[in-house]
Design a protein around this nucleic acid. Structure first.
Length: 666
DNA sequence: GGATATTCATGTAT
DNA sequence: CATACATGAATATC
C-alpha cells in the first residue's frame, strides 16, 4: 500500500504537518450531517445490504435504501428549489424512458402536457415543450432527484447527440487546427434544455447512478449530477451548520493529472487543487481554499465523498474512462513538498466497507492481462483456437461444468446462397479511405450520405440497414466504413452464469455504439431445419422485437429539421442464422428484456453480390465483467401458440431479472 | 445579476 | 507515443 513512487524518490517528501488549525466542531458528529431534526437517518447505519453484486442486472431497484436515505438527507443546498406537494404529484412517474426498457415512449394525454407546460411557465423554467421531439422527458422532480431509468435515458441522449455532432463535424471540410468538442456542445445543449438530473447537490449516493458505472466524458457526470464541475477535480457544496456555513466536499475525480496514489483499491491518496500543478503560471504553494478547504472540512465532518477514478481506456488508449467507485471517507490530510518545491495538500481517503467491488474488479482484470494464472475458474485460454484476432477465455467459477457442448468456431456468417436483391451490387471507388462528407463515395451515398461511424469507430445511428465497404471496394482495409469487419477489439470471455447457462462478458469496457461482434453461423432456410429451435442457437430477423429509441433527437440538431429517421432494422427477406453447430462468441449472448446490446443489419458486397451480416453494438456504456445481453424478440409462431394454438414451442421463461421483464422470450 | 477566475478536459499537432 | 497547446463550460465567488 505504500506508494513505490514516493518511496524511491530521493528527496524526502512526506511532511505530515497538519494542514491547518481548524477548531473542532462543538458537536463532533462522525456522520454527516449534524444540523438536522430529521428522524433516524444515519447514512449507512444499516450498512449496504441492498447492494447487488457487481455483475447483477442493474435494475432500478438496485439501491432502494440508499436512494431513500438520500431523499431524507436533511442537508439541502441553500439555494435548492423546493417543489410544492401538488407539483410533485403531477410529475411523479409521468414520463417513461424512451430506451429499450419500456419500448417506444407513449405520451400522456394532451391535457397532461398542457398542464405541464403551464406549470413550467408559472415556475419560470425555460423549457421548449414540443410533442414531436424528446426535449421534454425529464420531469421537474426527476431533475432534482434521478432514478435508474432517467440516468440511462439522459446518458443515451447525451451520447447520441454527441455522436451526431461528431458525425456532422467529420463531414465538414476541416479548417485545420480547429478543435472539435462535440462532448461540450452536446453537454451544453442538454444543460440548456434542462435534460439533466440530480441538480440538487447532495452528499453521498446519487440516485440512479450505481457503483461501477462508467463514463467517457466529464460532461456526462455533470448532466447526471454525479460531479458538477466540467473540469475541476473537487466538487463541493455549502452546508449549513448550527450557526455557520461551511463547504463540504461531495465528490472528487482522480484521473492522473496530479500525482495521486491509487495502488490500493480501497485507499486513495488524493492531491489538493491549484498551485503546484499549474504548469502555465509556474508552481506555487497550494492554498487552503475552494476544494482544498472543502476536503479539510469534510475530514473534520467525516462525511462521505464520492470517488470517480479516471484512467486510460484499455481499448482506445487516447481516450479516458471514468469509473464511479462509490463512497469514501477522508481519514487524514497533510502537506507535501512537490518536486517543484512547492507545498501541496494530500488527502487520504478510505473506501467505506460493504460496497460492491468496482475499481477492485478493474485491478483484477489488470492482473489477468499480465498472466492468466491468476484467473480463477479458467478452463480454456482461447475457445476460438486462434480464429479471432483476440483470444476468448472460457471460465467457470460457479460449478463443475467443464464447458459448453461441442461446436465449430467460425468468425463470420456462412451463406449457402446469396441474398437475392433487386438493386445491383457494387462498391465504391475510393482510393485510400472513404472520407466522411464525400458524396462521390457510393457506399456513403447508400447510407443517405451519412458516414455511419465516427472517427474513432463508434456507430452514430441505428438504421434499417447500414452499408459498409466490402472486400471488393478498392479502399484500404482500415477504411472506417468497415467497423464490423475488423474482428474483435475487446477481450471477451465466455462464462458460466448462475442460472442461465453460459454467457458472454468482457474484460474491456464498451462505450455506447461500439461494435462488439457479429452473429456467426450458418444461414438456413427455416427454423425447423435445426429442429427444436436449435436449442436456442438461432438468430431470426423475423422475430418481433421491442422497438426502442437510440438515435439522437433531430430537434436538437438544426440541420435535420424535425424529420425523424426510422431506426428499426429492415431486412429485405427474413434471415435465419443457426449457430448450433457452427458459430462464434455471439451464440453465448443471453437474452434480456432490459438488454445492453442491440443488433443491426449490415450489408456489403462481395463478387457482385450483397450479403447481410448481423452486427452487435453496445446500447450504452458497458463496464467490464457485465454480462452482455440482447433482446431475442418473440417468435411469430410462439405468439400464435400463445393465442391459443398448439404447442408453444420455442417460448421460454425469462430469467433476466430486469424490473421490466416480459416473463418469457423466443 | 453579470462578469471573472478557477479547474485532475479534450482533440489535434509535433 | 508522449508532450504542447489552444479552446472550453460549469460553477463559485466577487
Amino acid at each position: 500500500m505504500e506508494g513505490g513512487r514516493s518511496g524511491n524518490n530521493s528527496t524526502p517528501i512526506i511532511d505530515k504537518t497538519r494542514v491547518l488549525d481548524v477548531e473542532p466542531l462543538r458537536t463532533l458528529v462522525p456522520v454527516f450531517p449534524s444540523s438536522s431534526n430529521a428522524p433516524p437517518f444515519g447514512p449507512y447505519s444499516s450498512g449496504f445490504a441492498p447492494f447487488y453484486p457487481f455483475s447483477a442486472p442493474q435494475g432500478s431497484q438496485a439501491t432502494p435504501d440508499l436512494n431513500q436515505q438520500t431523499h431524507t438527507t436533511p442537508a439541502a443546498p441553500l439555494r435548492s428549489f423546493r417543489a410544492t406537494e401538488s407539483y410533485e404529484d403531477d410529475f411523479d412517474g409521468e414520463y417513461e424512458s424512451y430506451d429499450g426498457s419500456t419500448g417506444s415512449a407513449k405520451r400522456k394525454p394532451k391535457s397532461s402536457s398542457q398542464k405541464r407546460a403551464r406549470k413550467i411557465q408559472d415556475l419560470d423554467f425555460t423549457l421548449s415543450v414540443d410533442e414531436n421531439n424528446f426535449v421534454v422527458g425529464v420531469s421537474l422532480s426527476e431533475r432534482d432527484d434521478g432514478n435508474r431509468e432517467v440516468v440511462h435515458s439522459i446518458q443515451m441522449r447525451f451520447d447520441a447527440l454527441r455522436r451526431r455532432l461528431s458525425q456532422l463535424e467529420d463531414a465538414k471540410e476541416s479548417p485545420a487546427g480547429i478543435i472539435r468538442r462535440a462532448d461540450l456542445k452536446a453537454g451544453n445543449i442538454l444543460m440548456t434544455k434542462q435534460v439533466r438530473t440530480n441538480m440538487r447537490k447532495r452528499i453521498g449516493t446519487v440516485p440512479g447512478v450505481e457503483i461501477g458505472d462508467i463514463f467517457f466524458f466529464r460532461m456526462e457526470m455533470c448532466l447526471l449530477g454525479l460531479h458538477a464541475p466540467s473540469m475541476a477535480g473537487i466538487d463541493y457544496m455549502s452546508v449549513r451548520n448550527d450557526l455557520e456555513e461551511e463547504p463540504l466536499a461531495v465528490s472528487i475525480v482522480s484521473s492522473g493529472y496530479y500525482d495521486d496514489d491509487a495502488e490500493d483499491k480501497d485507499v486513495l491518496i488524493y492531491s489538493g487543487q491549484g498551485g503546484a500543478a499549474n504548469k502555465d503560471k509556474g508552481a506555487t504553494d497550494q492554498k487552503l481554499e475552494r476544494g482544498n478547504l472543502a476536503l479539510e472540512r469534510s475530514l473534520r465532518r467525516g462525511n462521505e465523498v464520492r470517488v470517480i477514478r479516471g484512467m486510460k481506456d484499455s481499448v482506445n488508449q487516447v481516450s479516458k474512462v471514468y469509473l464511479y467507485d462509490g463512497l469514501f471517507r477522508i481519514q487524514e490530510s497533510w502537506v507535501e513538498k512537490a518536486k517543484s518545491g512547492c507545498n501541496i495538500f494530500k488527502y487520504k481517503l478510505a473506501r467505506i466497507p460493504g460496497q460492491p467491488d468496482a475499481f477492485g474488479v478493474w485491478k483484477s482484470i489488470e492482473k489477468w492481462r499480465e498472466g492468466l494464472s491468476s484467473r480463477a475458474g479458467l478452463i480454456l485460454p482461447d475457445i476460438t483456437s486462434g480464429a479471432e484476432s483476440m483470444p476468448v477465455a472460457l471460465v467457470n467459477d460457479v460449478d463443475e461444468e467443464k464447458g459448453p457442448a461441442y461446436f465449430t468456431y467460425v468468425s463470420t456468417v456462412k451463406y449457402s446462397k446469396s441474398f437475392k436483391l433487386t438493386q445491383p451490387a457494387y462498391g465504391c471507388n475510393c482510393r485510400n479511405a472513404c472520407q466522411p462528407g464525400n458524396l462521390n463515395c457510393s457506399c456513403i451515398r447508400k447510407n443517405e450520405g451519412n458516414f455511419p461511424y465516427t472517427a474513432n469507430g463508434v456507430l452514430v445511428c441505428r438504421a434499417p440497414m447500414i452499408h459498409e465497404c466490402g472486400p471488393t471496394c478498392p479502399c484500404f482495409p482500415n477504411c472506417k466504413n468497415r467497423a464490423s469487419q475488423t474482428g474483435l477489439k475487446a477481450r471477451l470471455e465466455v462464462f458460466k452464469t448462475k442460472d442461465r447457462g453460459w454467457g458472454l462478458r468482457s474484460w474491456d469496457s464498451f462505450r455506447a455504439g461500439t461494435f462488439i461482434c457479429e452473429y456467426a453461423g450458418e444461414v438456413i432456410e427455416k427454423v425447423s431445419q435445426v429442429g427444436e429451435e436449435g436449442d436456442g442457437y438461432v438468430f431470426d430477423t423475423s422475430h418481433v422485437y421491442e422497438s426502442f429509441k437510440w438515435n439522437y433527437e433531430p430537434g436538437l440538431v438544426e440541420e435535420d429539421g424535425s424529420i425523424e429517421a426510422i431506426e428499426e432494422p429492415n431486412v429485405p427477406s427474413p434471415l435465419v442464422i443457426s449457430s448450433k453447430n457452427v458459430g462464434n462468441v455471439a451464440r453465448f449472448m443471453n437474452h434480456s428484456c432490459y438488454p445492453n446490446v442491440f443488433w443491426q443489419p449490415i450489408m456489403y458486397e462481395n463478387n457482385n453480390e450483397s450479403f447481410i451480416h448481423i452486427a452487435f453494438f453496445a446500447m450504452r456504456h458497458i463496464p467490464p465483467m457485465t454480462e452482455l445481453t440482447f433482446d431475442y424478440g418473440k417468435s411469430r409462431s410462439g405468439e400464435a401458440a400463445a393465442d391459443g394454438g398448439s404447442t408453444s414451442r420455442g417460448r421460454r421463461k425469462c430469467l433476466c431479472g430486469a424490473p421490466i421483464c416480459r416473463g418469457y422470450f423466443g
